[in-house]
């Protein structure tokens, strides 16, 4: 099996400061990888470099495109990268208002991504929007409401629907459950797990919540000061951490 995403020697510097350095990994179809670390450890920088939101200074991000096989998305032209961004890739932001159009109806938010890949039939677009709102448990009669009128958890679910409607193969998530209360968080975790299994999605999830990665991610990378200090199977990294920093991180979690 060929990897969906192959990252080699990825580095990003902010002046003389390190954003992330020398990151390498392979992600296979259907795999969910978590990236954890304290704030400032370079998780978000890495995610933004992978998703093409920031240009890395060194390294390659190879993606298995549908048309041409393995392509380096760093050296790809901007239009090609943007095309990937609205077809095979999806990006779920931590704050839903970064990923939604707040003044456009919920249905419009979902439909926009479909129109971006060529859908033009109003009935089809609305039908797909209703289908996806149902899947993320938003009532059909809210389709013409604006996200501004939604609760935080609903906005986050709407953002997920908007991102997944085009059937992406790789989803980047930046703290998808951060800032949500625990009951909504549980709902969202269940939703994400179901979608990953049914659609065969691969996902990269940045979070600082170890309980979230344990439930969602197959694999884990622990970051510290821009470097990956420990990669491995999620349960193995959390139950038998080898690196001093991972041991500190795991032992610092408060018991409920």
């Amino acid at each position: 099996m060929t990897p969906l995403l192959q990252v080699k020697g990825l580095s990003k510097f902010y002046g003389h400061r390190i954003g992330c350095a020398d990151v390498a990994f392979d992600l296979y179809p259907g795999e969910v990888m978590g990236i954890v670390g304290e704030s400032g450890s370079g998780k978000s920088t890495l995610l933004n470099c992978l998703a093409g939101h920031q240009p890395p200074d060194q390294g390659q991000v190879m993606f298995d495109t549908r048309a041409d096989g393995m392509r380096d998305t760093v050296t790809m032209s901007e239009p090609e990268r943007r095309m990937l961004g609205r077809t095979d890739w999806a990006f779920v932001h931590q704050h839903a208002h970064d990923g939604l159009r707040m003044n456009v109806s919920a249905g419009g938010n979902v439909g926009e991504r479909l129109m971006a890949v060529g859908a033009r039939h109003y009935g089809d677009i609305r039908g797909a929007a209703i289908d996806w709102l149902g899947r993320v448990e938003i009532a059909e009669d809210r389709i013409d409401d604006r996200p501004r009128q939604f609760s935080g958890g609903m906005q986050q679910r709407l953002q997920i629907a908007r991102n997944l409607v085009t059937g992406p193969r790789l989803v980047f998530m930046d703290e998808p459950t951060g800032g949500l209360d625990v009951s909504v968080q549980a709902c969202l975790l269940d939703l994400l797990r179901g979608l990953v299994r049914e659609m065969g999605l691969s996902a990269i999830i940045v979070t600082h919540d170890l309980a979230v990665v344990r439930l969602l991610a197959d694999r884990l990378m622990v970051m510290k000061d821009g470097y990956v200090v420990e990669p491995g199977l999620t349960d193995q990294v959390l139950d038998d951490p080898q690196h001093a920093y991972t041991q500190l991180l795991v032992s610092s979690v408060l018991q409920v």
Binding site: Q236, D239, D240
Partner: peptide, 9 residues
């Protein structure tokens, strides 16, 4: 047992 499962290295 955990080593057999790959949970411990």
């Amino acid at each position: 047992m955990r080593m057999i499962y790959g949970n411990y290295t």
